[in-house]
Every structure is written in C-alpha cells, then in structure tokens.
C-alpha cells in the first residue's frame, strides 16, 4: 500500500471525517490561511497603494447598509482603505508572525527539552528552573519586556524594517518553556525504553540517540501543543499591536486594525474594529478547535 492510500484508510482521517467540529474549523482555518496567503492577488483593493486611496472614500459603511457601496464589501476605514482587503492583508501578517514565532519557540523548546530530559541531573535542573521561572510570568509580559529591550538596544532607523522579527523573537521567547516541558516529559519516558538502551549498547553518541531515536518519538504531543499555541501567538501579536508596541500602521496586522478601529467605535463607525475582531476570533477559534481535535485523535487512550 502506498503512502496516500494508507493515509486515506487511516484511523486519523476516519476520526476527522466523523467530527463535524474538526471539519468546520479546518474549513474556516483553510479559508483564513488561503485568503491571507493569496491576498495580494485576490483582495479587491490594495490598502498599501497610496495612489488609489482617497479620503473621499473614508468611513464608508458595509455594503449591506443603506450608504454602503458594493465595491467596499465591509466598508472602509478613516483613510478610505477597503476593510476586507485590510483584513486579508492583516491576517497574512498575523499568521506570518504567529507561525514564525511558534517555529522559533518550537526549535528552542525541543532542543532544551531533549537535552534536559536526556542528560538529566544538573543540566536538567538548571534548564527546567529557568523554564519554571519564566512560566510564572504571563507570556505577554515577557513579550512586552523583550520587545522593549530590543527596541531600546537597536537604533531607531532599523525599527520599521525589523519590527516584525522583533515581534517574532519576543513571542517565541515567551512561549518556549511549555514546549520544553512537554518534550522533557516525553523524553524521560522514551529514555527509559529499551530501544534507547539498544542504541547505547552499540555506542552511539548522545546527540545521535537524541536526534534519530528520541526526537521522532516525542514530536507528536509537542506538535499538538504547537497548534494550540499558534492561536495564542496570534493573539499575543494582536495584543502587542493593540497596545501599540507591535506592528506600525504602515504594516497593519489584525491587532493594528482593531486598535485603529477602536478609536471610532463610539462615534458610530463600529465596522472598522468589529470586522477585524471577528476575523481574528474566527481564525484563533478554528485553530484552537482543530488543535483540540488533534490532541484527542492522537491520544490512543481516548480512541
């Protein structure tokens, strides 16, 4: 049986097909992801094209309202930018930051967890105490702190260009301990298994045992947590941007859009903040539900 046929026949796909929640959230997540990635091609307007912007178009309500125009399906913001296009471009930036941040946190967390779990002793104690201390602070606080320090250290002219990577770094650093703890726990279990002993008997190096034997067996749970954390990382970014320490209005993420719109919430132009909010909520919710389902589907005890 080839790999594709095996996948189609697998319990994994079977449990997916039987879970309406999983299917719906996967669909929503897919729409978000594709809408975001393809936004330069499929978005009705280009919110960064200053030439096409006109203040005449500002604060147009959504198309379904009395003053709405079909050209601006979800209305426009204070500078006359099309909200739908803004949301699509914003989602793209939010996803980019979230995925990179989680990737970074995964790399750090898996390395630390593997080393701590496999080496044990003092190395383990030191690494895990660091993680413990960090876990006592809310992730957003760590991200704020890291973000602030990096901004203070780097010269101002760099800020615009690298702001997005500063954000990735800040969120990634804030989220690695959870991955490290999970990987360490699984590593402790795997380390005691006889296949690891078999590798030790033939004298393989520790690094080789960790990478080729233990790593493939500890990835499952941590990838599930990564999915759940992706939603949180996107929220982190939105929070930082909302607080004004994230992405600048020239690179508006969903969080930036919500912050901008917030100023007009009480003057009647509710759509400027509500629609990006709904988009953010939908995306994070679908990712989280998908993560929940993944956790259950991969847990043999619940099957």
């Amino acid at each position: 049986m080839n790999a594709v046929a095996r996948f189609i026949d697998s319990d994994f796909l079977y449990s997916f097909r039987r879970s309406p929640v999983a299917i719906i959230s996967a669909l929503v997540a897919l729409v978000c992801v594709f809408g975001a990635i393809l936004s330069p091609w499929i978005a009705p307007h280009d919110p960064f094209d200053l030439a096409s912007l006109s203040l005449m178009d500002s604060f147009k309500p959504p198309a379904f309202m009395a003053d709405g125009e079909n050209a601006y399906l979800l209305g426009t913001d204070d500078q006359g930018r099309d909200l739908l296009s803004g949301i699509m471009y914003g989602t793209r930036i939010s996803l980019f930051v979230g995925v990179l941040a989680i990737g970074f946190a995964l790399a750090v967390g898996i390395t630390v967890g593997l080393v701590a779990g496999y080496m044990g002793g003092t190395v383990d104690a030191v690494l895990m105490r660091i993680a413990d201390v960090q876990l006592t602070f809310p992730a957003i606080l760590i991200a704020l702190l890291v973000d602030g320090v990096v901004r203070a250290v780097l010269p101002r002219e760099f800020h615009e260009k690298i702001e997005i990577y500063v954000l990735v770094f800040a969120i990634g650093i804030a989220r690695w301990p959870q991955f490290a703890r999970t990987v360490r726990g699984s590593t402790l279990v795997e380390r005691g298994r006889e296949y690891v002993m078999a590798a030790q008997v033939i004298g393989l190096s520790r690094a080789r045992i960790m990478i080729s034997h233990i790593l493939p067996n500890v990835l499952g749970p941590v990838l599930v947590i990564a999915t759940l954390n992706l939603g949180l990382a996107i929220l982190d970014e939105a929070t930082l941007s909302f607080l004004g320490v994230g992405l600048p209005p020239t690179q508006p993420s969903l969080g930036t859009l919500i912050r901008i719109g917030n100023d007009f919430l009480f003057s009647g132009e509710w759509w400027v903040t509500i629609f990006p909010g709904i988009a953010l909520a939908l995306m994070v919710l679908s990712i989280n539900l998908l993560g929940d389902w993944l956790r259950d589907a991969l847990n043999p005890r619940l099957r």
């Binding site: 006889e194 296949y195 002993m197 590798a199 008997v201 033939i202 004298g203 493939p216 067996n217």
Partner: peptide, 28 residues
C-alpha cells in the same frame, strides 16, 4: 564494542516504533 550486544525483555519497547525494520536491523 561490536563484539558484544544485547537482547531485551519487552518486544514492544525495544524497537523504535518510528523506524522501519530494515533500518532497525541495519543500525549496528
């Protein structure tokens, strides 16, 4: 070192579940 090796108790834990049998046998 090559001249000594070991056989284990638990046939469910002594083989890496993510490896194909040919790679398990070929590892030494």
């Amino acid at each position: 070192r090559r001249r000594m090796n070991m056989i284990f108790q638990d046939p469910y834990a002594s083989l890496n579940p993510r490896w194909r049998v040919r790679d398990i046998v070929a590892e030494p």
